[in-house]
Design a protein around this nucleic acid. Structure first.
Lengths: 195, 195
DNA sequence: TCAATTGTTGACCCATGGGTCAATTTAAAG
DNA sequence: CTTTAAATTGACCCATGGGTCAACAATTGA
């Protein structure tokens, strides 16, 4: 008896392949055939494990999100103070493996489908909710209660904006610049004495 | 002799129709047939005025961008101080007619194509360049030279992030909240005495 | 009034790609 | 072994949609 069923292995391979194809081809160019080939399988197998294209990419989004979530959790472990937790969350969003033009392209392609794909919208809502929750749990110890929501929204918007920028105009925007941006914001927006 | 050639009229109608269809249907769903129907014409006419689908949407993006540019110019006219100019630029980006989920969906769809469509990438570059230039022309009179670039990038990223947010999770994000975000940023990031 | 140009249409072609399916291979269970 | 189930394939179907084209309508200018 295998520890992980072959169906689980395949499904993971396929949703990862889907995300990788998305990076280079976009949603329209990411055909089932290309995903299958990229995973070293045939088109039929894709539809054997996923009901249809939407479901496949829904799971691809879930997987990519889970990966980001893990990174945040990982970094939160080493964080002791609220300020450290805040930085942990932010820095996780700019890890090299994530903060790359191709990865951003894939996310962009998924986001562009959100308005017309309720399943993707649901995942997006979850992502936002978790981000907000994480940020608030740190911010409430740093800022007056009335300011936390606004700052949390600003931080997520800044992160998203920098990600979008990376996807649109890769040249000139490095990880360091992005992180410097985030630091600059926090320095000016959080109370002076700390940090 | 007509003042505006009929070809120019048609081209404008079609690129506007293209952008409007994009709002509801996304890039994949925005077929030539739908654009034609939405403009009250036949599919043939679309390809008579535009070489292909890419070119059509390239012009749709140009038009939408021009519209935003006009709004900025308009508001800049009434601005006297650098700070007023800064607010003019920002507020133009959040005018009701622009800051709407459907409009944001259309932009998202276009942006998602940028990585694989050099023409769109070029337009995007122009948009960024103009935004940067506008912001810097105001910021140089408000901040020390060394900080201007960073703040300009932060402002654009914040705007983009808020737009993206509106597209992904329409509920709960109003124009007022978005503008409050921008003001909050400026209050904390710009020198104290002014404003 | 009559070319000549421009605008416009709808029929058609064809590649693409999502999805179905029967048939085959492989593996598990008894 | 054998049987039952799962995995896998590739051929096939078919709707869709981008793009072409020949023919027709309208407008212009002489």
């Amino acid at each position: 008896m295998r520890l992980t069923k072959i169906s689980e292995i395949r499904r993971r391979e396929l949703r990862r392949a889907a995300f990788e194809v998305l990076q280079k081809e976009g949603m329209a160019g990411a055909t089932l055939e290309k995903v299958a080939t990229h995973a070293g399988a045939s088109k039929g197998i894709v539809l054997h494990y996923f009901a249809n294209k939407q479901e496949l990419f829904e799971h691809a989004m879930r997987e990519a999100n889970a990966s980001l979530k893990e990174a945040v959790v990982e970094r939160l472990h080493g964080a002791r103070t609220p300020l450290e937790r805040l930085h942990a969350i932010i820095e996780a969003n700019f890890e090299e493996r994530f903060f790359q033009p191709s990865v951003c392209h894939a996310w962009l392609s998924l986001c562009a489908e959100v308005p017309r794909e309720p399943q993707l919208a649901r995942i997006q809502t979850i992502i936002h909710a978790r981000m907000r929750s994480n940020l608030l749990s740190a911010l409430t110890h740093i800022l007056p209660a009335g300011e936390c929501e606004a700052v949390a929204l600003a931080i997520t918007s800044l992160i998203d904006g920098l990600w979008l920028r990376l996807g649109l105009q890769s040249e000139g925007l490095t990880r360091d610049i992005a992180l410097a941006q985030m630091r600059d914001y926090l320095v000016h927006r959080l109370p002076k004495t700390q940090d």
